[in-house]
Every structure is written in structure tokens, then in C-alpha cells.
């Protein structure tokens, strides 16, 4: 994959995506061991403190350090969107495989099921799940992951159907390979480039969905700092001191843009068939 990595870095947008994603991942890792202040620590003297050496991004009404909150928010965002992406990848791939290889009516049923479920906006599906099961990190992960899973399933169903029609799949069947072997030895590896690119885009959507859920109060529990909740808490200040809203907003934009560009770059760089000669 070194060739793919090189051409990813060589494209300007791919490099930017990689850099932004790396910053988010780095911020998350740093927040695990160090934040300038305890993100939950209330300090009345620092209420609405301006940007300074002591408070890099300023502080909110309760005097909580905004830089520490943004750092800690990265942790939630990355955890929820990564876990949701894993859920989406697993459910999407399993559904797609079921839709691609099962015979007759099962295939049709799974196919129609995916098409119906994809008609529901992910956010609506998430809100329904949260409304039924209550707000928790797990619910948020499952809600976003399942919603995106149907999207993954539809793309992967087409991709797997394409791979299943390949000559080498017929050749493998002619050699005695059964359905399972065809799937894991032949179809999955050949559908993996598409899945990789798809997942980086799903990751970007998951970041937005997590922020939206938190903003609406349907996300992770209120004790956990998230960018979406920061926006919600700070929005009353939009006309008074708009500068405080810049930080969580910027964090969300940078993360989504980073994963999107990374996905685009991977798609352009990661096509081994194009690089082969």
C-alpha cells in the first residue's frame, strides 16, 4: 500500500485531509492524558474570560476552559463516530452479503428492506432509537451506526454483486469453493477498496450526526463534553459574544472536512487497478 500512500500524500486535498484527520486524532490522544484544565471544573472568577494565555479559547459562563472542553469533546466525537463507523461497516457488509448471495426471495426481501430503511433520514432513525431507549453513548453509537449501515449496505450490495459476476468467482466455484469461501476469500478482499473509501465518508457523516444529536439533547449523557452540546449551551451568546461559538464550530468543520477529503484522496489514490501498470 506504500504506492497508494504516496499518491495520497501527493494530491493536495488528500494531504490536507490526512493532516486535518491527524490533528483530530492527535487532539483526542492528548486529551486522554492532558487538558489544561479539568473540562468540568467550574471557576466563577473566569466567567466569560476572553482569549488569553491562561484560557487559549476563552471560558464559558461557568468559567470552564473552552480549549479543554474542545479537546475533551474530540474524545467523544472520535469515540462515537469511530464506533458508529464500525457498527455501520459490520451491519452494512453483512446485509450487503446477504442481499448479494442468498437465493431468490431472501435476496429480494433484504434488498427491499435496505431500500425502505435508507429512505429514513439517519437523524430521524437515531432520534427514534434514543426516544425509545434513552440517551446514552451506546444508543448514540447504535443509532448512527445502524442508520449509516443501511447506506453502506446499499453501496456494498452493488459492489459485491459486481465482484460476484467476475470470472474469477466463477473459476473459484468451478474449483469447488462454497458460498462462505467465495465471500471471504474472493468477494470481500476485492470489495474492500470501495468499503475503505466509503467508511471514511461515513465517518465524516457520523461526526456531523453525533454533533447534531448532542445539540438536540439526544446524544451522549449530559456530563460528557461534546462539540454539539457546546454549540447548544453557547448559542444564546450568538449575538453577544459570537467568538465563543467559533471553537466548537471550527472543530466540527475541520473534522468533517478532514475525513471527507481523506475519503476522496483514498478513492483517487487507492485504486490498485489504476496503479498496476
Amino acid at each position: 500500500m506504500t504506492g497508494a500512500f504516496r499518491s495520497l500524500v501527493r494530491s493536495r486535498s488528500g494531504l490536507l485531509g490526512l493532516a486535518l484527520s491527524a490533528v483530530v486524532v492527535a487532539a483526542t490522544l492528548v486529551s486522554l492524558v492532558w487538558t489544561p484544565y479539568d473540562p468540568g471544573a467550574v471557576d466563577p472568577r473566569a466567567s466569560w474570560a476572553p482569549v488569553s494565555g491562561a484560557h487559549w479559547f476563552g471560558a464559558d459562563r461557568l468559567g470552564r476552559d473552552l480549549f479543554s472542553l474542545v479537546l475533551a469533546g474530540a474524545r467523544t466525537t472520535l469515540l462515537v463516530s469511530l464506533a458508529a463507523t464500525v457498527v455501520a461497516a459490520v451491519t452494512g457488509t453483512l446485509l450487503a452479503a446477504a442481499a448479494a448471495v442468498t437465493p431468490g426471495w431472501v435476496r429480494a426481501a433484504v434488498g427491499y428492506g435496505i431500500d425502505v430503511l435508507i429512505a429514513f433520514p439517519t437523524l430521524l432513525l437515531a432520534m427514534v432509537l434514543v426516544a425509545v431507549h434513552g440517551a446514552s453513548t451506546l444508543t448514540a453509537v447504535l443509532a448512527i451506526g445502524l442508520g449509516e449501515g443501511f447506506f453502506v449496505a446499499r453501496v456494498m450490495r452493488a459492489e459485491m454483486t459486481r465482484v460476484l459476476a467476475a470470472d474469477y468467482v466463477l473459476a473459484a466455484r468451478a474449483g469447488g469453493a462454497g458460498t462462505w469461501r467465495i465471500l471471504y476469500a474472493h468477494v470481500l478482499p476485492n470489495a474492500l477498496p470501495t468499503l475503505t473509501v466509503l467508511l471514511s465518508l461515513v465517518m465524516a457523516i457520523a461526526v456531523l450526526a453525533e454533533a447534531a444529536l448532542s445539540y438536540l439533547g439526544y446524544g451522549v449523557p449530559s456530563s460528557t463534553p461534546t462539540w454539539g452540546r457546546m454549540l447548544h449551551d453557547l448559542q444564546t451568546q450568538l449575538t453577544i459574544r459570537p467568538q465563543v461559538l467559533v471553537w466548537p464550530g471550527l472543530a466540527i468543520v475541520a473534522t468533517v472536512l478532514g475525513f471527507n477529503l481523506l475519503g476522496d484522496g483514498l478513492r483517487d489514490a487507492g485504486d490498485p487497478k489504476a496503479r498496476r501498470t
Partner: peptide, 27 residues
């Protein structure tokens, strides 16, 4: 399918027309 698969490869072997597309490019 399950009853005929054991025969493929072991009882009847196939050679295909297109030697490139009949091989898995990633294997």
C-alpha cells in the same frame, strides 16, 4: 449446490478462456 460443489475441482476441473480475469487479482 452443496451436493455438487464437492465434485467441482475434484471430479471435474475447469480451464477458462481469459487467463487474466479468471484469476483473483488480489490473491
Amino acid at each position: 449446490e452443496r451436493a455438487i460443489a464437492p465434485l467441482r475441482g475434484a471430479g471435474i476441473g475447469f480451464v477458462f478462456q481469459e487467463p487474466l480475469t479468471a484469476l483473483n487479482p488480489l490473491m
